[in-house]
Design a binder for these strands. Structure first.
Length: 601
DNA sequence: CGGCATACG
DNA sequence: CGTA
DNA sequence: GCCG
């Protein structure tokens, strides 16, 4: 209500010089601590504040130990809860005497109104139970000695030599200077190449490479189990979402093995492969020696697994069953856990539990499925079968026909992307009438088919993606959403959304709008009906010709490749923005996620 | 000990 | 939360 | 879990 700065009663017009000065520097003397990482909008909002606040007399810092901090921003979630956990110990409540805690909206409104707002009206919600987050007792540093990487008993390879061997012919001298994210981008993750590695004769290659491939596949399976187990995301003590570290570690290891230029043999040492440490090297060795490993076997039998200290990991039972549940569209880790907890073990169990609604055991709540889940269960045979290469041409023709009909333009460029492109097999060796193993390799099935659509000369309007969906529905090639089938549109609306966020948090508008954009593209997630009546997941991505090269990188690369790419970009002078790879402008020195410049610790 | 990719429906 |  |  009233601004403590005394401006509340100042006449609006005819301001006295003192009042004017007060109004031009309404935040004089304020030093604001901003936990950028926890702030909605993050460093972009911080940068906007940095442009506005000095003009009002305030200074900003991200250093919780800095002297003279008068205000600490405690970010407030949309639901009103305050994130006290992001404050450094020095500023933890009650904090130094005189320190004021405010939400981000105090800053935004102060900027917007060019006037210091009443801190009391922007007080963050009290911390739950007012208890500081429990700090685990300081543990002895595990001290995974860096020196172990080198010549422990004269056998381990020096790091550069290991990288050289790992990359093989792809190695260049520059690789010696790269960090892991960049190094990971140098690999060749081609599945066929992986299969070929270390093998000169065809028969021998197939036998040898089967074991090699088993490593990759087993690791990938482990990764999936971990995701079903924990959910793809965990929460750190500050409540921030972080990726599941075990899952990520398995993904890393699978990548390292997939691109390894030589045939692995037990024992595999952590020095050999990037991103593979003691734990994972042991797993790989066990897989090489026995074809599997203890954890994998336990997961496959739905048994709980033990951690490295021998303790049973809570909630680790049922991983295989839950993994199977999550293969249904619309069922993620959470729903799968709920089904498991109800004692459901098969798809049939789920269908039965849903059908006997109200007739279940006393006290048990009826199982309610949403439309997506009902559809997925009903058509699970089709959907779990996946998409074969033979379906692709039919899909492409349907997309082309719809586009030509909608726009009158011919010459649409429809490119297969995604896993079905990455894993396309070369023509099978037809000479093998004598039973070459290659002829027994089953045709690949992919969970969906992805098509990237563009046109080199025709310019389309904003809602072509929506029209395309409607046309495909009208032609009965994809199923409408009211069936419960997946039929979603994703549009590039992020520019609007982020601009609104910026308006909300900075009081700014307009000029910032051009700086923010989405790296998502107009996109249909659909369920395709083949001429034979089978249902297949199909995605269509619509891009302009100038978006195409960037979009292809993102859509042909694997998830892991995309993560390495973005991690590398975030380390350096590049960003992926608006679907493009752009240089950080010179005027805005590159900052890390704490808003610090290069070289900052 | 912090970081680990990111955004839409 | 589910999906890419 | 692995890395810097």
């Amino acid at each position: 209500m009233s601004a403590p700065g005394g401006g509340g009663g100042a006449p609006a017009a005819a301001a006295a010089p003192a009042a004017k000065r007060q109004r031009t520097m309404p935040l004089a003397g304020i030093c604001l601590f901003v936990p950028v990482k926890a702030l909605p909008g993050g460093s972009a909002v911080f940068a906007a504040w940095k442009r506005s606040l000095p003009g009002l007399g305030a200074s900003l810092t991200q250093d919780g130990g800095a002297a003279g901090i008068t205000h600490a921003v405690v970010p407030q979630a949309p639901n009103g809860t305050a994130n006290w956990g992001c404050l450094p110990p020095a500023l933890a409540p009650p904090g130094p005497s005189g320190l004021l805690f405010v939400t981000q909206h105090w800053v935004a409104d102060s900027i917007r109104r060019q006037q210091r707002q009443d801190e009391g009206a922007y007080r963050p919600a009290a911390a739950r139970a007012a208890a500081p987050p429990p700090k685990p007792a300081a543990r002895a540093a595990p001290s995974r000695a860096g020196s172990m990487r080198k010549g422990e008993d004269g056998e381990a390879l020096p790091a550069v030599e290991a990288i050289k061997a790992w990359l093989g012919p792809l190695w260049r001298p520059e690789c010696a200077e790269m960090d892991l994210a960049e190094l990971a981008l140098q690999g060749d993750y081609d599945e066929e190449r992986c299969r070929r590695i270390g093998n000169e004769h065809v028969v021998e290659a197939l036998r040898e490479l089967r074991k090699f491939e088993e490593v990759v596949e087993a690791l990938r399976e482990l990764r999936k189990f971990e995701e079903a187990l924990n959910g793809q995301w965990l929460k750190n003590p500050q409540g921030k979402a972080v990726s599941n570290h075990k899952s990520l570690a398995y993904m890393h290891a699978a990548s390292a093995v997939r691109t390894c230029a030589y045939k692995l043999a037990p024992p595999v040492r952590p020095e050999q492969l990037p991103l593979v440490g003691d734990f994972t090297a042991g797993i790989i060795t066990e897989i090489l020696e026995t074809g599997s490993c203890a954890q994998l076997e336990q997961f496959r039998r739905d048994e709980p697994v033990r951690d490295s200290r021998g303790g049973v990991r809570a909630d680790s039972a049922g991983a295989a069953t839950r993994r199977a549940f999550t293969k249904l569209p619309g069922v993620g880790a959470k729903v799968a856990q709920q089904w498991w907890d109800r004692g459901l073990r098969t798809y049939e169990d789920v269908i039965e539990a849903a059908a006997s609604r109200g007739l279940g055991a006393a006290g048990s709540k009826p199982l309610v499925l949403n439309a997506t889940q009902r559809f997925a269960l009903e058509h699970r045979a089709d959907l779990l079968e996946g998409t074969a290469e033979s379906d692709l041409e039919e899909m492409r023709a349907a997309i082309a026909a719809s586009l030509i009909s909608l726009t009158g333009a011919r010459g649409w460029h429809i490119e297969i992307v995604g896993g079905s492109r990455r894993q396309q097999r070369p023509a099978a060796d037809a000479s093998g009438s004598g039973g070459g193993s290659s002829s027994r390799v089953p045709p690949k099935q992919h969970h969906d088919a992805d098509f990237m659509v563009t046109h080199h000369s025709y310019t389309w309007g904003e809602d072509l993606i929506g029209s395309l969906r409607d046309e495909l529905i009208a032609r009965r090639r994809i199923l409408p959403p009211d069936t419960g089938a997946m039929c979603m549109l994703q549009q590039n609306r992020a520019a609007d959304i982020e601009a609104k966020l910026m308006d909300d948090l900075t009081g700014a508008s307009g000029e910032l709008r051009s700086n923010v954009a989405s790296d998502r593209l107009d996109h249909i997630f659909a369920t395709f009906r083949t001429a034979a009546g089978r249902l297949r997941r199909m995605d269509v991505i619509l891009v302009t010709p100038d978006q195409l090269p960037y979009a292809l990188i993102g859509w042909i690369g694997s998830t892991m490749f995309n993560r390495f790419l973005r991690r590398h970009m975030n380390h350096g002078l590049w960003r992926i923005k608006g679907g493009r790879i752009v240089r950080v402008p010179d005027q805005a020195p590159p900052i890390n996620r704490r808003g610090q410049g290069p070289g900052a610790k």
